[in-house]
Design a protein around this nucleic acid. Structure first.
Lengths: 202, 202
DNA sequence: CCCCGCGGGTGACATCTGTCACTGGGCCCG
DNA sequence: CGGGCCCAGTGACAGATGTCACCCGCGGGG
């Protein structure tokens, strides 16, 4: 009863290291490695492994995107997310995409190995403190346009420039950013951007 | 002739994985693992390994801080930095601290193993494209106070709040941020903060 | 059918930011 | 000793930003 795994992670060193780590377990078999989301999907389709172990932030398709695609295809591969960030919005999207495990890179290695076994056996692994934090944070209060404006504001663009890019009037952009700041309890666009990002809403 | 190594990395999973990877090489010996800079220094002092392999961004003392301390102590342990970020300012500080190797986590695993062997044999490993980028970027143009102000501005504080925190007048803060933006070719504090951070100057 | 929420927009206003000019003090270096 | 820096501050002004009130059109649900 070996557990067949595909690993996706954009940092080559980390990818190789995790693969080396998991290869030490006699009941694990690494059937593929990918450095981005599209490669990961291709490998999953080619090998239908038991587990897709994936990072979230990758070039092109993110790990969450992959999970969504696989859920839509009703693939029999279970997704386990391993990420640096404990952002509530990420966890929420993961849950919605039917992800079966969500771990932080902070965790000790035993946790990863144990989580893979649990998920392969049909279980779920979501650390309770993450779930609690996600509960605290509530759900994304931003509208799509507010998110768009905030993303550009984060990069240091002025209202005028944001308006140009979005095809809006500068006044509307001001309103969006003002609303966003209000919803997020922020005093200005910078703080608004920071809290939105910290929560995984951008 | 085994190469004795201490590894410092704050993300438990990555730490464990890299340790597992390096342990596969028969001439490497992992004599210690640390999750922050202070622990790393303690281990280096206790074991005087051939190599300290360290991340930069860690809680407490950073990997660069550790390299500086070891250089000041004229320790015989060579430092190899492994980081996510190709920031010119990081590379410059690493060079100044006598770091002997600087790698990105993007690199394939062979690169790491090869780099460790090279450094242990007395060599240096700095990827030429990083060195070129650092040359391009020049050196940190900011003064200490400008950096202080910019750091707080990044967090969304107003001039008044920054002034309060730094014990300055709001006008002075405005001047600092304006100068910083000018030096960095930025249109406002947000852009200034971004470019300063991208260059490793914050 | 009517109302609400949402996207989009306008105008006005207060405040905040960015920019410039100019004043000092302290310090280091030629 | 003078010149150059960094640091700190002041004053003034234009333009950007944040806030509010209020407008319209559209689509969906009671």
């Amino acid at each position: 009863m070996t557990i067949r795994i595909v690993i996706a992670e954009d940092q080559g060193l980390v990818l190789g290291a995790i693969a080396a780590l998991l290869a030490l377990e006699s009941d694990f078999e690494i059937v593929g490695r990918a450095a981005d989301g599209d490669a990961a999907l291709a490998l999953v389709r080619a090998h239908t492994p038991d587990i897709l172990l994936t990072d979230i932030e990758m070039p092109g398709r993110t790990g969450l995107d992959c999970a969504q695609v696989l859920a839509a295809e009703k693939a029999r591969t279970a997704v386990v997310i391993v990420t640096t960030f404990a952002r509530p919005g990420y966890l929420a999207r993961a849950r919605a995409a039917g992800v079966r495990g969500y771990l932080l890179k902070d965790a000790p290695v035993d946790t990863l190995v144990a989580a893979i076994r649990t998920v392969a056996a049909g279980g779920r692994v979501i650390p309770p403190e993450l779930a609690a934090a996600a509960w605290e944070a509530g759900s994304d209060p931003l509208t799509d346009r507010e998110r768009d404006a905030l993303r550009l504001a984060e990069e240091g663009l002025s209202n005028k420039d944001i308006a140009r890019r979005l095809g809006l009037s500068p006044g509307t952009v001001r309103n969006y950013l003002s609303e966003a700041a209000g919803k997020l309890g922020a005093a200005n666009r910078i703080e608004a951007g920071r809290t939105a990002r910290a929560n995984g809403w951008l």
